[in-house]
């Protein structure tokens, strides 16, 4: 049952990162709506119930000019509020930790399987593929694939980022000039591109198609068109493209 449901979600989703995001976002939203509805209902109820009417009287403890008002309030209620909130927040923290562990702990990259001898699911080593470098420039993205192992020149492409479907893709993101942020919009994953630093993220695309990549940090006059296209291809097509470069 569980795996089947998981497979169903995967069928609908574009990538594993989107699944992680959607699950966590739903958890937050269920609880947010629950809390919000209670609070707003309570507020509206109290305001309507206790609104001033022609025949209503000031409460006995109404503050009057000329005297410091009496101190009200019960520590018990504060304690209850804080405890209830803490339970909700703990659930959110635990959920967030599990999700971020997934997002920031890349497994072995598998995008290069079948491209290099010694790499592949059938190979005895099941080796980790080299990472793909993503570099932000004012105002375009550049993707560098290690072309032939080892120590061969990189194959670099601008504007278009091709990856094989269902493979694990691990990318190292950096910047050549100013602060950018690399985000694959439908995959709900992004990381900052900072000069002199490398940030690693990973994803596993579930469906063929083209996806919008955009810069998410104001980086200058061309920021709004600093886009790229992620193309998810069937593995054979990807390999054919890769070998033709």
């Amino acid at each position: 049952m569980g795996t089947r449901k998981k497979q169903e979600t995967q069928k609908m989703a574009f990538s594993n990162t989107e699944v992680v995001f959607n699950n966590l976002f739903s958890l937050f939203t269920y609880l947010a709506v629950l809390v919000g509805v209670i609070v707003f209902a309570l507020m509206a109820f109290l305001i309507i119930k206790y609104r001033e009417r022609k025949n209503s009287q000031d409460p006995e403890d109404t503050p009057r000019l000329g005297r410091i008002p009496i101190v009200r309030g019960h520590g018990r209620n504060v304690l209850i509020t804080v405890s209830l909130s803490t339970i909700i927040l703990l659930a959110l923290i635990i959920g967030s930790f599990a999700a971020v562990d997934t997002l920031l702990t890349p497994p072995n990259g598998t995008w290069c399987y079948g491209l290099y001898p010694g790499y592949g699911a059938q190979s005895p080593l099941n080796q980790d593929c080299p990472r793909i470098d993503v570099t932000g420039h004012q105002f375009y993205w550049e993707f560098s694939y290690p072309h032939a192992l080892p120590h061969a020149p990189l194959y670099t492409e601008k504007y278009v980022f091709r990856v094989p479907k269902d493979a694990t893709v691990v990318i190292d993101v950096t910047s050549a000039d100013v602060f950018h942020d690399f985000g694959i919009i439908p995959f709900k994953i992004k990381t900052d591109a900072i000069p002199g630093r490398v940030n690693t993220i990973w994803f596993q695309p579930y469906q063929n198609g083209t996806y919008l990549i955009q810069c998410f940090e104001l980086c200058g006059s061309g920021h709004y068109y600093m886009n790229a296209t992620l193309i998810v291809m069937q593995v054979p097509q990807f390999q054919a493209w890769y070998n033709s470069t």
Binding site: F28, A32, G36, L103, F216
Partner: peptide, 26 residues
Amino acid sequence: VALFVIGGITGVYLASVALDHALRGT
């Protein structure tokens, strides 16, 4: 106060490092 409640609850979303990997800069 009502608007603050909405702003505060959505702030909790952004406190989550996992959600922030999608929501940052949006």
